[in-house]
Design a protein around this nucleic acid. Structure first.
Lengths: 309, 309
DNA sequence: GAAGATTAATGAATAATATTCATACCTATG
DNA sequence: CATAGGTATGAATATTATTCATTAATCTTC
């Protein structure tokens, strides 16, 4: 135990991530370091304080009481810092501008609303807006100045554009509880052959299930569309067809047994979500803050999501 | 402006020290780094936030609004951390023991009392005590187990003992306002030849003025002793003699013009204060905490003190 | 008013240390 | 019982914070 504290914010950021993800590996991805780095950090803290902070619990790791103390410290401290940094951004007169959000993914409304409310509080001078309607090439919207940030799964490299990874999520097949396929734990492409697929009203190449699973297998099921997630789920529950939706978007419906969810393919069908902006927009403090709090609230509230790669 | 915050506690510790000391050089000593290191740190923050944090004000430096924001953040955050680290110390069952303080320096009562009150709050399980009476060799007290920490100016290397530097302070000559020597801005050894020196009741070799100034010059003034600082100042004010006391111990009396203070020698007469403990005691968390808060409160409340070397 | 003493800023060199790499070991799971 | 996914750890590496050496500016003092 040395005479001065070795604690640094790096450690607190790690602990916060550890708390949110519940595993060293996932936390490592969250803070863009390796599992090894985090393991070393934790060890350093433990020898410094002469206390264990985590306890191996089978394959994963659990916070001890001491660890929980440090986590709650981390929460408080990191929040204070965020608040101060917001003030500094305002002082540097970079707190004004617009944040017009274009959504490629209908399900995202679920987590976006509370986020936007919080954002409005923190950045009253920023013009916050949702760009409505469907756009064939949302990235073009950015370049044309019609939006400031596009939230979707597109991440092709393109000059002048930055794709900020938000999180990876699993897309699950959604079935009526008494659907014949309920007996299978994992669904394959051919299972969809005889089904009607209920989707949002977007072109085929924007539907991961079709693009990455059905088309490669040469399967082209019937399609039917609905605007809202609840509408899709109603149709599924009424046995008008099956759907493929993000795990977090259907969680409460599955928990209430309105529908059941099944994995697609052995490793599941995964997709990434990105927030894309112009390079110049990316440097604005309020945009950075938006991204950080977006990730924070998503990881805190959405189940089953993981950092991108 | 990068995408993630580069802020670390190191920066906050620096900013706090900068606020307390009012100068980069002094702050550097306070955090045991070079002036250059701090200058680089500040520059890094400034370019990161796109704001100036300090403004050169002639020879020294002044915090800007942004700087003050960060300082107040630092205050809050560092306090939270200290509290958490106290909890951790309690959890590691190192929060019990005794802290018996032996004072070599009578004036120290002034700042020790509020400190001890705070300490009692934070470490209720630690037996806090003042070892009273005068001891010819206070360090021996440590070795014999009669005290846990000695506060004084002794800092001879001795095995098994650690001398933790607290701060350096200037010893000023104290005179009655109408004393003939009032015209001199700086007093020399010979100025004391005809005076009565009023001191605490300790041997000559523990009085810096005699040891370092008068004896080398072969001057041996009359001596008279008093137990309490106020008593000494009463005698001085009643023109019974002159005294030599720490600048911070007499500040309020000088401010009220009860007495006047003069520098001793061209560069002043300086002395260091140390908190000495056994090596094993030094590692106890509550002792570390005592030292840290001692320094903090001293630097915050006492005027004109500087870090040791 | 010039000399000397302090203070801060800065680029290059160095020292310190955080992170990665490679690997071992453990534990669920099919 | 093999495999996949997870953690721990020593050694190598990369990064970056700190120091060193120097300059410029300001204040003090004779």
């Amino acid at each position: 135990m040395s005479l001065v504290s070795i604690l640094e914010l790096r450690h607190l950021r790690t602990l916060a991530a550890l708390h949110e993800t519940g595993s060293v590996s996932r936390a490592a991805k969250r803070v863009h370091l390796t599992q090894s780095a985090l393991s070393h950090q934790i060890k350093a803290l433990q020898t410094h304080y002469g206390l264990s902070i985590v306890q191996r619990r089978g394959q994963t790791v659990e916070l001890t009481d001491a660890g929980k103390h440090l986590v709650s410290l981390a929460g408080k401290v990191l929040e204070d810092i965020q608040a101060t940094e917001r003030s500094l951004a305002i002082m540097s007169q970079q707190a004004t501008g617009s944040l017009r959000i274009a959504l490629e993914c209908h399900t995202c409304f679920d987590w976006l609303m509370p986020l936007m409310d919080a954002f409005r509080q923190h950045w009253p001078e920023v013009e916050l807006d949702l760009v409505s309607g469907f756009h064939s090439d949302p990235i073009k919207l950015l370049e044309e100045g019609g939006a400031d940030v596009v939230i979707g799964s597109e991440h092709k490299r393109r000059r002048g554009i930055i794709h900020h990874p938000l999180f990876s999520f699993e897309i699950l097949a959604v079935l009526a509880p008494e659907h014949p396929l309920r007996t299978k734990r994992v669904l394959k492409a051919m299972d969809f052959a005889a089904e009607t697929l209920i989707t949002y009203p977007v072109p085929e190449d924007r539907i991961d299930l079709i693009l990455n699973v059905l088309k490669p297998a040469g399967i082209q099921p019937q399609r039917r569309t609905a605007e809202l997630t609840v509408a899709i789920l109603q149709l599924v529950a009424s046995r008008r067809g099956v759907a493929a939706l993000p795990s977090w978007g259907i969680k409460s419906y599955v928990d209430h047994d309105y529908v059941i969810a099944r994995r697609i393919g052995a490793h599941g069908l995964w997709s990434d979500l990105y927030a894309s902006t112009l390079t110049e927009t990316a440097s604005r403090p309020y945009l950075r803050d938006f991204l950080v709090t977006a990730k924070n609230t998503c990881f805190a509230t959405l189940d089953g999501i993981v950092p991108v790669d």
